[in-house]
């Protein structure tokens, strides 16, 4: 465990907490893409099946359980408890266009053709694009609440910090995982436009509003 990875994980955890608090406190999930949240639930479910087979550390187990549980909790809040506030008219991204290619790619490009390994690879590919419905929703409405922007910034920072972690591990531990690195790069690149708007607008106290 190095500092980049620790901060990456904490940033990921912070993103989840911000999102749950936003929904809970405002009793509303307006501006949040339920499609992205469903994708995240699929991502963590397929990736963390190794909870049953491999023990790495108490930290690892704890975080995995938290990520799986909170992803389902978010989906529950959006589609059941605060269903009335869900922005379904704007959340129209077709997630099968992300799931199907991720499945095919995982079947073709993987390190080992076993059920767990293909599911892990699928989750890595799917995670890299899972934020697209959320970014699509923001572009459709043309704006995002500050709290939603903070959520997106924390969530985007997590994989960016993992990239630094992978650079560090490559040199310090002679360790690398090409599938995770390439997918992590894609994932981080997708946030670049948002990062730019966040730094130039939200941090200066303005609302994130896209040019008309």
């Amino acid at each position: 465990m190095n500092i980049f990875r620790l901060f990456g994980d904490l940033s990921h955890l912070l993103a989840i907490i911000i999102l749950l608090l936003k929904i809970w406190k405002t009793r509303s999930c307006a501006g949040i893409s339920g499609k992205s949240q469903i994708l995240f639930a699929i991502v963590y479910t397929s990736r963390y099946l190794d909870l049953m087979t491999t023990y790495i550390s108490a930290y690892n187990t704890f975080m995995k359980i938290v990520f799986v549980a909170t992803s389902y909790a978010t989906v529950f809040l959006m589609y059941m408890k605060f269903k009335a506030t869900y922005d379904r008219n704007h959340d129209t991204f077709r997630i099968e266009f992300l799931i199907v290619p991720a499945v095919i790619l995982a079947l073709v490009i993987n390190q080992e053709f076993t059920v767990l390994e293909v599911l892990w690879t699928f989750s890595i590919y799917l995670e890299s694009v899972a934020i697209l419905p959320q970014l699509f929703l923001v572009s459709k409405t043309g704006e995002a609440e500050s709290i939603t922007s903070h959520y997106l910034f924390a969530l985007g920072s997590y994989r960016a910090l993992y990239l630094l972690n992978w650079v560090y591990r490559y040199y310090a531990e002679d360790h690398y995982d090409l599938i995770a690195i390439v997918a992590g790069l894609v994932q981080t690149v997708l946030y670049c436009d948002f990062f730019y708007l966040y730094i130039t607008k939200v941090l200066k106290g303005k609302k994130l509003q896209l040019p008309a």
Binding site: R5, D9, H12, D50, T54, I56, N60, M63, K64, F67, Q111, E112, E117, W120, Y162, N165, Y170, D174, H175, Y176, D177, L178, A180
Partner: peptide, 10 residues
Amino acid sequence: TVIDHSHDEL
């Protein structure tokens, strides 16, 4: 360099 299969990251 070792290719990792253990997936010790999150």
